[in-house]
Amino acid sequence: MGFGTEAGWGADRETSFAIMEAFANAGGNFLDTANLYKLGTSEKFIGEFINPRDRDYFVIATKYSLKDNTTNPNASGNNRKNMMRSVELSLRRLQTDFIDVLYLHIWDDLTPIDEVLRGIDDLIRQGKVNYAAISDTPAWIVSKGNTLAELMGWSQFIALQVEYSLIQRTPERDLIPMARHFGMTVTPWAPLAGGALTGKYLRGGQGRVKPESNRRDENSIRITQEVMAVADRLGVEPSHVALQWTRQQGFECIPIVGATRVDQLEENLKSVDLVLSPDDLKKLDEASAIDLGFPGKFFREDGVRQNSYGGFYDRIIPRS
């Protein structure tokens, strides 16, 4: 999202290339972007970087839905017309014949989900897309879509991208149990809550998260302080703890880490060397616990867990 300097922030071409080079040298090969990021500049930079390299080594994910042409009334939404138009433009910017993972970026509350799935399935059959995925969409819609796809023989959604972090755990109410049921990989955006979980704001640092944001409210500060305490005890950075927490949730989870400087990427990559102990996970879970609401909270009541459903919810979200 930060490749390009449109809107007054982000990484220029040279810095973006240096970030991707450092990522590739570290063994990284999964790049996540979108048609709208930096008005298309992100896709252009990625395409220019990968074009002289081994395309098959990289897994490129991009998204469609959000408007990328304000003069065209058809250049937005989940509909098939916009999907086909957007994918063709993304292929040109990315300088590739195919997109590995195509996400529906955000639900428009208008297009029938079967239209979306049939459209992506057609793109997959044409060889322009390898896998279907979905982002920022209610669990019941994703469930309906994957069930329809199974019945119709279409390609199902294989990944779910939602905001998920120690500060934002509400997807545990239904989105993540749904993803686990369908075997979908979760690819959280903002796993560091816009940098709040690095502790930089508590240390007086500056960033794009405004003081009035809920990422910097009393509850978020308390969670961040616990992250910093665990990090201090382990001798690592708070970002390592926050990122590794997402990777140790008991389901397939690949946090999407944004970087506008090489040193940010290099620091975040160190999280793969960390393993949080059960005690560390418990402290973090307790500090960031949310009210699951009904029926999740009801399922956790001792009497219900012991006498009724046999611990189903504990198996879906083991520690919450």
Results as ranks from 00 to 15, higher is better:
residue 125 R to F: 10
residue 259 A to Q: 05
residue 72 N to D: 15
residue 106 I to Q: 06
residue 320 S to F: 12
residue 56 D to Q: 13
residue 66 L to A: 12
residue 51 N to Q: 11
residue 23 F to T: 03
residue 22 A to K: 02
residue 40 G to F: 11
residue 14 E to D: 14
residue 105 H to T: 01
residue 264 Q to M: 09
residue 73 P to M: 06
residue 275 V to C: 01
residue 101 V to N: 10
residue 10 G to Y: 07
residue 41 T to R: 14
residue 87 V to L: 15
residue 291 D to W: 06
residue 77 G to T: 02
residue 30 F to M: 08
residue 20 M to E: 06
residue 262 V to Y: 01
residue 120 I to C: 12
residue 210 K to R: 15
residue 289 A to N: 06
residue 51 N to A: 12
residue 214 N to Y: 15
residue 99 I to E: 10
residue 296 G to V: 03
residue 53 R to A: 10
residue 45 F to C: 00
residue 301 E to C: 00
residue 6 E to T: 15
residue 139 A to K: 04
residue 134 I to G: 09
residue 293 G to T: 09
residue 88 E to H: 04
residue 83 M to G: 02
residue 216 R to S: 01
residue 34 A to Y: 05
residue 21 E to P: 04
residue 20 M to C: 08
residue 313 Y to M: 14
residue 8 G to D: 01
residue 225 Q to S: 14
residue 214 N to M: 15
residue 58 F to C: 01
residue 36 L to W: 11
residue 311 G to N: 09
residue 141 I to R: 13
residue 144 K to D: 14
residue 247 R to L: 07
residue 178 M to T: 11
residue 297 K to I: 02
residue 152 M to E: 15
residue 233 R to I: 03
residue 247 R to N: 03
residue 102 L to F: 04
residue 42 S to W: 03
residue 94 L to H: 01
residue 213 S to P: 05
residue 259 A to S: 13
residue 105 H to M: 01
residue 245 W to D: 06
residue 172 E to A: 01
residue 231 A to D: 14
residue 57 Y to F: 11
residue 244 Q to D: 10
residue 143 S to G: 15
residue 111 T to V: 00
residue 31 L to C: 02
residue 10 G to V: 05
residue 280 D to G: 01
residue 92 R to K: 15
residue 30 F to H: 11
residue 22 A to M: 05
residue 189 W to L: 12
residue 208 R to T: 09
residue 69 N to K: 10
residue 208 R to Q: 10
residue 65 S to K: 06
residue 287 A to Q: 06
residue 70 T to I: 14
residue 307 N to Y: 12
residue 70 T to W: 12
residue 67 K to R: 11
residue 77 G to P: 00
residue 37 Y to T: 04
residue 163 E to N: 03
residue 174 D to C: 04
residue 88 E to V: 00
residue 188 P to H: 05
residue 61 A to Q: 03
residue 118 R to Y: 13
residue 201 Y to V: 06
residue 272 V to F: 11
residue 150 E to D: 14
residue 248 Q to F: 03
residue 300 R to A: 07
residue 31 L to G: 05
residue 243 L to N: 11
residue 309 Y to C: 09
residue 310 G to S: 12
residue 74 N to I: 01
residue 280 D to C: 01
residue 4 G to H: 10
residue 244 Q to E: 15
residue 149 A to S: 13
residue 69 N to D: 15
residue 272 V to S: 12
residue 126 Q to T: 10
residue 63 K to M: 04
residue 180 R to C: 01
residue 273 D to M: 08
residue 46 I to W: 02
residue 204 G to K: 04
residue 229 A to N: 14
residue 220 S to V: 09
residue 26 A to W: 09
residue 57 Y to H: 12
residue 176 I to A: 07
residue 65 S to A: 13
residue 67 K to I: 08
residue 28 G to Q: 07
residue 121 D to Y: 09
residue 311 G to F: 04
residue 268 N to A: 08
residue 115 E to V: 06
residue 151 L to P: 00
residue 31 L to P: 03
residue 130 N to W: 11
residue 155 S to R: 11
residue 205 G to W: 05
residue 163 E to P: 00
residue 266 E to F: 04
residue 277 S to Q: 00
residue 117 L to T: 10
residue 54 D to N: 13
residue 196 A to L: 05
residue 190 A to N: 13
residue 254 I to D: 04
residue 246 T to K: 08
residue 275 V to R: 06
residue 182 F to P: 08
residue 1 M to I: 08
residue 57 Y to V: 04
residue 79 N to Y: 02
residue 279 D to L: 02
residue 216 R to L: 15
residue 50 I to N: 03
